[in-house]
């Protein structure tokens, strides 16, 4: 892979980020009232002070000027202050981001660990008993909304069996091994909910990707050389079939973030998803904009990673 390819991909990511920022700013600008101007609409502020404030905040400038000023502030890391917690938005988000990334990362690993073996086995014998059962479970898996699976798990494992804690907390008790066990225990349910939902849709992609590859001539060649079926499958088919799956994992990221917001809200995981919801319920506009922007950046970042990984795994792509 050449550095030329890397650079080209990086440059493609910039217009997407700019486009997303335009969409976000347009939504904000079209919204009625001054979402950022809490002070400006306060009735206790006299009219002339209000006008001066409006002018100093630049609320009366033409819209493109306001966009560039907003973008410039975002780029410099000046994301404003939370109305509620009186803390700068970027610090608030940075505080919460690691938890979200950890939960999403763990659930992606779970999803991949479930989806790849099941999908490959299902494709190895298409329309067999196993394939049909796997397909039915995949349908059930992505038809079950995350908020319902979350409540079901709480109902079974916390309320009925009392095995796992309902609420995720940053300060788990104990030290050493007990600390690790407590931290893992409280993450089990959120990670399972997200991972199984994601795994269910991945199974179908893995299966159809393996079915595509299994038809190709090089697989027939490998078989006719007398290589065992298992070796053909693992060494020749799966390695090639997984290349498009890498892209799919990244392209599913927007949906995963949606699932993460819901799961964080159900299990009260202190990540940026639950931060977004509590900010909305408290009308905390700077935080809402900041979190939405971070989610957008993460999506673009994952698309970029997928492109680069794809070029590395399949050099034919990088040459184009």
């Amino acid at each position: 892979m050449s550095s030329d390819f890397l650079l080209r991909r990086l440059l493609i990511a910039i217009p997407s980020l700019l486009g997303i920022s335009v969409v976000l700013f347009t939504v904000l600008a079209l919204a009625p009232g001054d979402p950022f101007g809490e002070l400006v609409t306060n009735p206790n502020v006299p009219a002339e002070v209000r006008l001066a404030l409006r002018a100093s905040l630049g609320l009366d400038d033409p819209i493109y000027l306001r966009y560039f000023r907003w973008l410039w502030a975002m780029l410099q890391g000046d994301w404003g202050f939370s109305f509620v917690s009186r803390m700068s938005v970027d610090r608030l988000i940075l505080q919460r981001l690691p938890t979200t990334v950890a939960v999403i990362g763990a659930s992606q690993i779970l999803a991949i660990m479930v989806a790849i073996p099941v999908g490959v086995l299902a494709a190895a014998k298409p329309y067999s008993m196993f394939d049909q059962i796997a397909n039915t479970f995949a349908f059930i898996g992505f038809s079950l909304p995350t908020f319902f699976t979350g409540l079901l798990l709480i109902l079974v494992f916390s309320v009925q069996l009392d095995w796992l804690p309902i609420v995720y907390s940053t300060e788990v008790g104990g030290s050493g091994l007990t600390y690790i066990w407590n931290a893992v225990r409280q993450a089990i349910m959120p990670v399972t909910v997200l991972g199984l939902f994601q795994g269910a849709s991945l199974v179908r992609y893995v299966r159809s990707s393996v079915l595509e590859v299994i038809k190709l001539d090089f697989v027939t060649t490998a078989r006719s050389k007398g290589i065992g079926e298992r070796k053909v499958l693992v060494l020749h088919v799966v390695r090639n079939a997984l290349i498009p799956v890498v892209t799919l994992v990244a392209l599913q990221m927007p949906i995963v973030f949606g699932g993460a917001i819901v799961t964080e809200q159900i299990f009260r995981v202190p990540g940026i998803g639950s931060l977004l919801i509590s900010a909305m319920l408290a009308n905390d506009t700077p935080v809402i904009m900041g979190v939405t922007f971070v989610f957008s950046c993460l999506v673009v970042l994952f698309n970029l990673l997928a492109d680069i990984l794809y070029g590395w795994l399949d050099p034919r792509i990088a040459l184009r």
């Binding site: 969409v23 939504v27 917001i261 977004l276 909305m280 939405t292 957008s296 999506v299 673009v300």
Partner: peptide, 16 residues
């Protein structure tokens, strides 16, 4: 396609 759907959905509903 690369917009995060749920956050944006929530944002628009919150604002409008």
């Amino acid at each position: 396609l690369s917009l995060p759907q749920l956050p944006l959905l929530l944002l628009v509903i919150y604002l409008f």
